[in-house]
Each structure stands twice: as structure tokens, then as C-alpha cells.
Design a protein around this nucleic acid. Structure first.
Lengths: 335, 335
DNA sequence: CTGAAAGCGCTTACAG
DNA sequence: CTGAAAGCGCTTACAG
């Protein structure tokens, strides 16, 4: 329908192989180059990636698979990945598997049938899939974001989950808190377990006995964070500080505290997780652990592209990006 | 690399045209059909959509372009669209243009170069793009979600924006409220203007003079909603009810009320916009206008696919989906 | 209903 | 450095 390499060749008086070579960065004789460039310009030629893909087995496409497209954290990362990839002329094909294992398998196959050149996977609470092995066998690189999936030997990009918790709790300890509660995520997930682990390690390092009633579970949801915080503040001996381990639970917990008219940090100190617009709207602004979503997204994209291009030098690599604590006013120093 | 139609043909002892026809739903002689089916099964043949696309000019791909991938409302809709499309064997290629006009143009061109079969566009506050005309000229259908874009003659899917506001405000009026404030979105956007319009119309219909100080702007953001609510409650004569016009402003406003220890609905009544998990966590649960994101997503997907398949019978159509009010406990009936 | 053949828009050894 | 040609995996008139 539109203008092809053949039209360009004719106009430039060269063979279509020559045009193709020009397009792929080979050197042409000066005179030819000029004529080809001119023909391309005059005809408004645009490459047909589909046709190219048929020969090269490249679709210039990266699959992105995640549990839920409405997850703020994941979409923040995907935004950064998409931008990086678009700059490299790769597009992303996105599939949401609604946190269901059978959907995950199906969507992975769906993408494989579309010949994605690589895969960025947010497994969430889902286990590995046999389809992933098919990817590996087919030489399609996979980068897993924020999960471990021990049974699949591939690249991973995560934050320093356990260390992030360690440092947040340590900070509270340095402010002389001893009664520190945690609102945990789902322990079926890697991040849930790791963030809990860092909490325990910090307490242990400072010789603080963990108290069972301070260890609560909000399952990474708003409602869960809300319920957990309510439970904590109604304890006979409530904690002096609460540490929440993701965005959604942070806001659920804050709403619970607000409702109960518990003042932060006067009555209770608070460290949240993830730094987004709302963190600064809340009064007082929250001290939080910030995840570098931009870097995570870029790293995931860069890594998958390196593999696509055949660079397996450091395979498999686990890239662990440090979180940053943003100190605001939600933690009080105890005497 | 993998098994092709040719392998199947050889195994089934038919020509590859026959296999192709079988794959495309043509009738074969019984005996041939059986042998082809068996060969496909035994070889584990899978269609090569790329090769197919080269001939048919179909990529089985729908472009999705939006201002921000972290927008909860948009991603809720996209989730529904993606699921519907995947069921029809279409995948979505997603581009985020970060609310910047120049990025919009670029991403639209990017997708066009990838031969998307159709486009679902969330323009946000961005104006039309000349690239859209190129889509139209190329016969690539466009469905615009929640915007009008008067200068581009294509299908649109929106909610009943102004009517949604009308009914929310009417409800407050029926509860004997007269001093009703609105926290408006960005008036550069279609939804912002429409939702404001419905507010004014409701007041007018019930002969209530709008009061300038009750008309505030939160620009669709958390922080904006927070600031606007703070302003409203510090008015010499605060409103008896507040109506917010999107999700983010709703939560910003609630946080402001909580902080100021203003009780909902005792001190002030409240109607929010969008029904998501947090709406029920908040105490009291909020009365809200719920947008049918699932239906919007499905409708957008169905409409674009109908066009892709050549059904332009009702073109251009503006599908307006009704919102539903969810009555909870955040509105008090005045005497 | 089916086979043989041309062709979709490219890439890439091969030979010069 | 370049042309001619084969081929990537399909579809689809054409003729039978």
C-alpha cells in the first residue's frame, strides 16, 4: 500500500539490497548514499517492521506481564521501562493476568505466539510457570521484577527489600523506639517475606525481642493496612512506632490513625513505604522508604534489551537497587 | 526455526494452500481436514502472526495511548479492554505520553509505524494531534475515551459526565443541602468542564444561586483536592456539603477533613467520585459516583474491533455510559 | 474443494 | 561496495 524499499531503490537507481543495507547502517558509496537518502526523504519512506521481523525474527516488541495494571508501583516502573524502550524503538505489549495463575500461563503463551523479543515479568504472588521454560528454551530473555522465582534461572531486578526494612527499623531504634510494629505484606510473596526479614534482623541486631502482637499483616492492601493499624492501636500496650511495607497499606493505616484521632508523630511514630503524591499531602508529611521506580524500570528495560542483543556476559544477574529514606515529620525521637 | 504451514502440509499430504485455508476457516474435504488437524496436533504447529500480518496487513494489535500509566482510572479501563481484546486474539501495545503534547505526537507515530490495527486513546488534557488525521486517512480506527476532541471525527466512549454531577448534586439538594461546594478538575479537560456543568445545572434547576467561594479547583490531583477542601472548610460560611469530581481529589479532600477533625457527615456531607477499595476503608464509607470502568473498557475495545473488521454502520458513535451512585454514609439529611 | 504460483516487504549470503 | 536471487511464513486469485 505505502512506499516500499523497492520504490526507493528505483528512484535512487540502486538495487533494493543497497537500500536495505543503507537502512541497516552499512556504508554506501557516497553518491549512492546521497541518492538513497534523498529518495527516502522525497518518498516519505518508512520502514515496515513487520516485513523486517519476518526475516530477522525480531518484532521489536517486549512483553510486559503483571498481576494488575492498576498497581501503582508496577505501572510506575512500566512507565520508565516503556520510555526507555520506545527510545530504542521497542514497543511494549502489556498483559494483565489478574493475579491468577492460569491467566498467567495463558498470557505468557499469548505473548510468545506474538514473538515478543523479550519479557519483563511482575509475578506478584504467582508461582513460576512452565511456559517460562519455553521462553528460555526459545532463547527469549526474561527479566523478573521484584520477585525471586528460584526455580527459574534468569535475570532479576529488585530493590534491597530486606535491607530497606532493616534501615527503616534501625532509624526508629535510633530514635529510641523499642516497641516497633510492622504491617506486613503477603508472606506468599518474595517482597512480603524479605521486608519482614529485614524488620526481624534489625530488632535482633539491636537486641530487641520481637513481640508477636506487633507483627501484623495487611496483605499489601488498603483495607488490610487499615485493619492492621486499628488492631495495633487498640492493643493494651500499643507500639510507639508503626512501619508499613507498601503504598496501599500505608494509606490504609494512616486513615485508621486519623479516624482514631491518633496524632502522628505525637502519639505514634510512623514510617511508610513508597513515596507518591499523597505522602506529602498527609499532615504531617510522612517519613517513607522510597522505591526508585524509574531506575527499576530502566534497569529492567536495559537488561532485557542487552539479552535481546545477545549480550549474556553476566547472566544471570540479580540487580538490587537501593531504596532511599525520605525523612519528613512522622517520627518522633523518644527520650 | 519452528514448524510452519509447509511442514503441516507435507505431513498431511496436502498443499500448503489447503492448510492455510483450513486455518482460516474454509471447508476442507473431510479426509483432508482430519489429516491436517492431526498434523497440526502432532507437530504442535502455531500460527505465525507476523507472516500472516505481512500479507493481510493486520497485526492483531491495538495501540493504547494515555497520559499516564499510573492513572488508576485509565488503567482500570485498560484492564477491561485488554482482557476483552486478548479473548479476540488481539494484543495491546501501550504508550504513555506523560501528558506532553509533543510526546503524544511521537508515540502516535511510533504506533502507526508498527501498524496497529486500531487505536484507543485517552487524550487527558492534550489537544488533538495531526497524526490522528493520518490514522483516519490510513483507515485505522480510533476510539477516544473520556474526551471529546471536537476536531477529530471519530468514535467516543465516555461516561455521562455532566449528568453524573447533576444527579450527585441533586441528591444533596434532596437531602436539603443548599450550600454545596464542588472541587473541580482541570477546566482544560472535557471531563473537568462537563462535571462542572452538571453541578451548575443542578443548582439552577433547583433555583439555587451558585456561590463563587464554593466553586474550587483541585485540578484532578490529590494535593489539589486537599488544598481545595482546606480552603472550603476555613470559609467564614463553609458549605454543608462537598462534591469532588475524581478519585484523587476525593482522597486529598478526605485527608484534609480528617486532619481538621471535621466529621463526615455530622459536620459536613460528602460525595466523592470513583469507587475503589479506599472508598470503603474510609470511615464512614463514602457515598460516591461510580464509573463503570469495566464497561468503558469493553465498549472501547468492542467498538475499535468492530471498526477494524469493517463495520462502520453507526460511525461515528458517541457511547455514553451511565454512572451509578453508591449510597453509603457520608451524606446527612438536613432538616 | 484443492494445487501451483505469485507476492506481502524485507534481509542476506553469494559472487563480483 | 553492490546486484541478483533466494527466502522468511503466510494468503489468495486462478484454474481446474
Amino acid at each position: 500500500m505505502s512506499v516500499t524499499i523497492r520504490d526507493v531503490a528505483k528512484k535512487a537507481n540502486v538495487s533494493l539490497g543497497t537500500v536495505s543495507r543503507y537502512l541497516n547502517g552499512y556504508k554506501l558509496k557516497e553518491a549512492n548514499r546521497i541518492r538513497v537518502e534523498q529518495a527516502i526523504r522525497e518518498l516519505g519512506y518508512r520502514e515496515n517492521l513487520i516485513a523486517k521481523g519476518l526475516k530477522t525474527n525480531r518484532t521489536m516488541t517486549i512483553g510486559v506481564v503483571l498481576a494488575s495494571l492498576t498497581d501503582f508501583f508496577a505501572t510506575s516502573i512500566i512507565t520508565a521501562a516503556e520510555n526507555y524502550l520506545a527510545g530504542e524503538n521497542y514497543s511494549i505489549v502489556v498483559c494483565d493476568f489478574n493475579s491468577k495463575q492460569e491467566n498467567l500461563d495463558q498470557k505468557l503463551r499469548f505473548l510468545k505466539d506474538r514473538f515478543v523479543d523479550g519479557l519483563i515479568l511482575f509475578p506478584g504472588s504467582c508461582a513460576s510457570s512452565e511456559v517460562l521454560q519455553e521462553y528460555m528454551d526459545a532463547g527469549i530473555p526474561i527479566v523478573i521484577v521484584n520477585d525471586d522465582m528460584p526455580d527459574i534461572n534468569t535475570d532479576k531486578v529488585t530493590i534491597d527489600n530486606s535491607n530497606a526494612s532493616f534501615r527503616a527499623v534501625e532509624y526508629l531504634i535510633h530514635q529510641n523506639h523499642r516497641d516497633i510494629a510492622i504491617i506486613n505484606g503477603d508472606q506468599n510473596t518474595y517482597t512480603g517475606r524479605e521486608r519482614y526479614k529485614g524488620y526481624l534482623e534489625a530488632l535482633q541486631t539491636y537486641n530487641i525481642e520481637p513481640r508477636e502482637e506487633y507483627i501484623t499483616y495487611g496483605y499489601f492492601s488498603n483495607r488490610g493496612g487499615y485493619e492492621a493499624a486499628k488492631k495495633l492501636i487498640s492493643l493494651p500496650k500499643p507500639p510507639t512506632a508503626i512501619y508499613t511495607t507498601n503504598y496501599y497499606m500505608t494509606f490504609g493505616a494512616i486513615i485508621a490513625l486519623n479516624e482514631a484521632k491518633i496524632k502522628v508523630p505525637d502519639d505514634i511514630s510512623f514510617i511508610g513505604f513508597d513515596h507518591f503524591e499523597l505522602s506529602d499531602v498527609i499532615n504531617p508529611p510522612l517519613t517513607v522508604v522510597e522505591q526508585p521506580t524509574d531506575r527499576l524500570g530502566q534497569l529492567a528495560a536495559k537488561t532485557v534489551l542487552r539479552r535481546v542483543k545477545g549480550d549474556y556476559s553476566d547472566f544471570p544477574v540479580h540487580l538490587r537497587v537501593n531504596t532511599k529514606m525520605i525523612l519528613k515529620d512522622s517520627v518522633r525521637k523518644l527520650k
